[in-house]
Design a protein around this nucleic acid. Sequence first.
DNA 1: CACCGTACTGACCGATCGGCCAGTGCTCTG
DNA 2: CAGAGCACTGGCCGATCGGTCAGTACGGTG
Lengths: 185, 185
Amino acid sequence: MSLHDQLRAVALAEFATAGYAATSLQRIAVLAGTSKASVLYHFASKEQLLAEIVSPALDDLEQLILPIEGTGGLRRADFVERFVDLLLLHSQVVPLVINQGATLDDVPVMHRATELMRRVAELFRPASGSTIEKLRFGVAFGGVAYTLAAADRLGLNGEIPIDEVRSALLEILHDLLVPADTRTA
Amino acid sequence: MSLHDQLRAVALAEFATAGYAATSLQRIAVLAGTSKASVLYHFASKEQLLAEIVSPALDDLEQLILPIEGTGGLRRADFVERFVDLLLLHSQVVPLVINQGATLDDVPVMHRATELMRRVAELFRPASGSTIEKLRFGVAFGGVAYTLAAADRLGLNGEIPIDEVRSALLEILHDLLVPADTRTA
DNA sequence: CACCGTACTGACCGATCGGCCAGTGCTCTG
DNA sequence: CAGAGCACTGGCCGATCGGTCAGTACGGTG
């Protein structure tokens, strides 16, 4: 693995666990076995390092929702499954965005993350505008993302196999999001 | 309102929205119309300011779960209702703990917060140890807390009356947490 | 009046932050 | 061999951080 990639990996882990503001370039450098100056050689700034870390996940999410927004067609069950897979694929980025998105929304890449989540919410909006449906959506996606982010801290996970997590999350989201009428139909 | 209380209020709002690390004592002072030195006159340190802000909510939570841990008796529906009321009562503290608990667990008061949430999780543990039940709990409480924390950002709330939020959250949590057998019984 | 505790301030401290820059090897190429 | 270019570094910069401290204004109290 190139130093560039290793710096990205180290920074991701630190940003996700300790927080962006609390992680200094110095610390990232030491953990990767190099100097602070070399970090800034590979990445123009701390913000751009963050952007390079987060962007791939956001690109994937955008690619997931763009065609849906275009056609207006959305089969919730399909979307939920692909969304969960996306969260699991970028499982380290999820806590970063979830826990620190609000704090860092002046950083362009994090603002983009918030905006994307808002668009995901919009996808579910037209079908049901009642308060409980809105909250149902918030609890569902916030809950899944937060659970992935905080599983260790709450002592929720031993070494649960990822397949089991996947199917469990799908079932929970299905209960919460797929309307009862299409469920029974 | 005394300056002491006003500083607490300003700091809470800033910590919750901008983040603990990103909020300087200088900024708190200016927002409260005083000097940084006076903030440190009222609070021995930035950490203690945080502790004074968060502790009351944690005390309430501890008072809620202590008798349950003692007797071992837990009627889930009752607990869920009281827990939601507690979250709504301390709605500004919730995002602070949720979003920044992991980042700040070296701060004693935030470690206490995480520990309390772990104990809440333990209350639900013995009844059902399967993976899906654990995740169900995580999604439920994480989701509710996160929804309260991030409602604005995701465009989920207009001016939804709090009673409506309360009953909606109760219904969602009930669906997720109260076991099907006691539901149908 | 003298005295005291409370509230508060401006100036300063060392530490650390993100970022910049001149310089140094090292490798590849003509 | 000369030289261009990439990878990397130590040292420095200004800014800002949390925190300390000596000093001040002031409303009681004897």
